[in-house]
Nucleic acid binder design. Structure first.
Lengths: 139, 139
DNA sequence: TTACTTGCAAATGCTTTGCGAGCCG
DNA sequence: CGGCTCGCAAAGCATTTGCAAGTAA
């Protein structure tokens, strides 16, 4: 996983107290999840009462523009974020629990590129989300 | 493409004047696009001034629940709809023009199912969108 | 110092909903 | 008739933004 604070600082983003805390919170929460803005806000605000949700919105947008975090819009309506990881991956969402699993599949990536080309396009972005229910073993 | 009006009627949905018009409009517009609620509203309202946007929202939700139309939420923020087609397909969106192309790829479908299974899940839904830019021939 | 940031509250944009009137079966 | 629908306007929700005060470099 990349270092959000470091990357932003190196790219010239002014790192304020709020931004540092928000970067820490996102990094931390990315370890086991894909937090939405409100969850990020709650955690950040706990560490510094002087952080508003407007700042969280402005900051995640900046971090995303600086290529330090990634935004996802799954079917639950809100935007979720995670620190950029070293390798690209897609997601499988448990529609019963909301649990999110990551997976990588090079084959799908290749076919996507081929499909885009066959339609006369250069693939610049994509979205692949699987929605499923846990398979129960004993029945 | 399925017959929206017929399917809803057969499944017992009360077909009012407004619903019939909205069904017609969506069927028509599905022939060459993926209209959003406002576009559907503008067309429907033209045929019958007595159709409000609230009714369009309520109606597309119903049609979707009755399995007659499909809802898509691409990265442009609003919901887009299209009459259900005979064969499943995914979409490639031209990020410059907004143009939407449909494609089918059985291989990707199979891999998705396999990936879900390998994670212990039964695939019940998925979302695959490609975003690209047109390849220009002469340069 | 000086441009960039922030918190607050107001404004957005899309979508949903309460309510009383109207319509379908 | 009786419940389902409708239009209207108000309400919701997530997100954005104007502004005056505060802050990093």
């Amino acid at each position: 996983m990349i270092d959000v604070k470091k990357m932003c600082r190196e790219k010239g983003l002014r790192m304020t107290g709020q931004r540092n805390i928000i970067a820490d919170v996102i990094t931390e929460m990315s370890l086991n999840g894909h937090p939405d803005v409100n969850e990020i806000f709650l955690n950040a605000n706990e560490k510094d009462k002087n952080i508003s949700i407007a700042t969280v919105y402005r900051t995640v947008k900046l971090f995303e523009e600086y290529g330090a975090i990634e935004k996802h819009e799954f079917k639950d309506g809100r935007s979720r974020y995670e620190a950029i990881e070293d390798h690209h991956h897609d997601h499988l969402i448990d529609i019963e629990s909301g649990e999110i699993h990551e997976f990588t599949n090079e084959e799908i990536e290749n076919i996507q590129r081929a499909v885009a080309n066959s339609l006369g396009y250069k693939l610049v972005d994509h979205r692949l989300e699987l929605y499923g229910v846990k398979i129960k073993k004993n029945n």
